[in-house]
Amino acid sequence: MVLRAGALATVLLAAGAWFAPMPYLVEKPGPAIDVLGPDVIAVTGADVSTSTGRLLLTTVEVVDVDGVGGAARAWFDDRAALVPREAVFPAGQSDEQAQRANEALFAESESTAITVALTSLGQPAGVRVSIGLRDIGGPSAGLMIMLGIVDKLTPADLTGGRVIAGTGALRADGTVGPIGGIPQKLHGARAAGAEYFLVPEGNCAEAARNPVPGLTLARVATADDALLALKTITAGGTPTAC
């Protein structure tokens, strides 16, 4: 009888652990958003061109782990990653505080993208740009927003009819910084039809370790590198690889 009770307790403890909350989160591919789509980039004070292709801003979706079972599923899914909760929500910071901090980083990345784009075009007088994206946090959208602005304000179609995705934290001097969630963003990009992915130079090693069939990786260290990669792709060439 004691043995049976002990065995039952062990089973119940195991079942509890299977469904109990865990100090981890799962990162998985989020939506890929076409920055050339309607209501994303609004320009006033200048004529705007249209493109036949798409420039995809890639995201990562973060969800709670559904117990040990959910952790196991994430562990064996090459599209997902199991990360410590504190890597997303720092200790001592509430979820709401972390969300506000990420929103502030995104707002800063928008402003930087506008500044870098207009600078690269010679600061056209009277041009105003606003971004209509919502529910996105962090700094990694800067590169693709910048490219979207330049594409709209350039008569030539920078996409050449291609579907090109990417990511990168754009700095005021035009350099492109590394970001998190590269494997998930690669999968999200390919699922959305991307043929090319602009990878920050600092993420190239990780991206090369996690190749996605049908997706060509292009290494970019600066905004100029990204523009050159687009020019190379539209001309039918091969961009600098990771």
Rank of each mutant, 00 (worst) to 15 (best):
V2R: 15
A7K: 12
T10M: 14
L12E: 12
L13A: 15
A15W: 12
W18E: 09
W18P: 00
F19M: 13
F19L: 14
A20P: 02
A20I: 03
A20N: 06
A20C: 04
P21N: 10
Y24H: 13
L25I: 04
E27R: 10
K28S: 12
K28L: 10
G30Q: 08
I33R: 11
I33Y: 04
V35M: 11
V35L: 07
L36N: 10
P38N: 11
D39C: 00
I41L: 13
A42M: 10
G45D: 03
A46F: 09
T50F: 02
T50H: 12
L56N: 03
T58K: 08
E61D: 15
V65C: 02
V68E: 08
A72F: 14
A72R: 14
A80P: 01
L82T: 08
P84H: 09
P84S: 03
A87V: 05
V88C: 01
A91I: 08
S94F: 06
E96V: 09
E96R: 12
Q97H: 01
Q99A: 14
N102M: 13
N102Y: 11
E103A: 12
E103S: 10
A104W: 02
A104P: 00
L105Y: 10
A107F: 02
S111C: 00
T115C: 01
V116N: 08
L118I: 05
T119A: 15
T119K: 15
G122C: 03
A125H: 13
V129F: 05
I131E: 04
G132W: 07
R134W: 04
D135H: 15
G137D: 10
P139H: 06
G142W: 08
M144D: 01
I145Y: 06
M146I: 00
P155Y: 07
A156I: 11
L158F: 05
L158E: 04
L158Q: 01
L158W: 04
L158C: 06
T159F: 04
I164T: 07
T167K: 00
G168N: 09
A169S: 14
L170V: 07
R171H: 15
T175N: 12
V176L: 07
G177L: 02
G180K: 09
L186S: 03
H187I: 02
H187R: 14
A189I: 10
A189T: 09
A194I: 06
A194Y: 06
L198M: 13
V199C: 09
R209W: 00
N210E: 06
P211E: 10
P211T: 05
G214Q: 10
R219F: 01
A221Q: 11
T222E: 06
D225C: 02
L227W: 11
A229Q: 11
K231W: 11
I233P: 03
I233C: 04
T234Y: 00
G237S: 07
T238I: 10
C242K: 09
